[in-house]
Amino acid sequence: MFEAKLQQGGLLKKILESVKDLVVDGLWDCDGAAITLQGMDSSHVALVEMLLRAEAFEHYRCDRNVTLGMNHNHLSKILKCANNDDIVILKAADQNPDSCSLILESKNGEKTSDFVVSLVRIDTDQLGIPETEYSAHVKMSSGEFQRICRDLSQFGDAVQITCSKQDVKFSSSGETGKANITLTHSATVDKEEESVTVDLKEPVDLTFALRFLNLFTKATPISDTVTLSLSQEAPLVVEYKIGDSGHIRYFLAPKIQE
């Protein structure tokens, strides 16, 4: 039997909002330690990896490893019925289940809703993502990053990200013209979620499709800050921590440098 009880249903709502527009169906791998999801968009340019450890749950039981093939649109419809402060319980048999139950309990205990969603058979190819030493890490406000991606997509369909010792520059150009947004490493880190830290081993200069970045920033409500990790000619990593019990990591393949 697999059963996981989340005190704050709102978190699962936010996770679904973060993945459903990028990956329609996903394999939720559940084992004794965590629930992990890895999925790619249809063009194999972007990938999302979600990890939620057992300690995020008020109650977590996973007698045998089980993989739940989830249709994220169906799951999202169910979670739209949940309030942020509802308790959400996920339940599934652990012998090749063909469905998953979701129970929503209102905070005052007066309302209980239960749903059964059919699981889907998915043959996605999973990718092995090697641990990598990145040339640059940029930690910044997640809201600020979302704003930059949204603003620059008015000017072009791609953003050039260049990191130097002291700052990170986001540039885009198209028939409207050219736009540059430069963030400078914050001298004082008084409020973490408003400061910018650039940790550079060597300069990077890469170009990425803004369409995908604007899908990644749907995870903005999950964390006040976001960390970008970059290396020359390697996929960009955009990471949102889920408290200290997990993360949502997006990977985006760069445009080919001429």
Partner: peptide
Amino acid sequence: TKSQHQLENFFTRK
């Protein structure tokens, strides 16, 4: 517009 890499160019299938 520049052409686009795919993730399989960087990550191996499991």
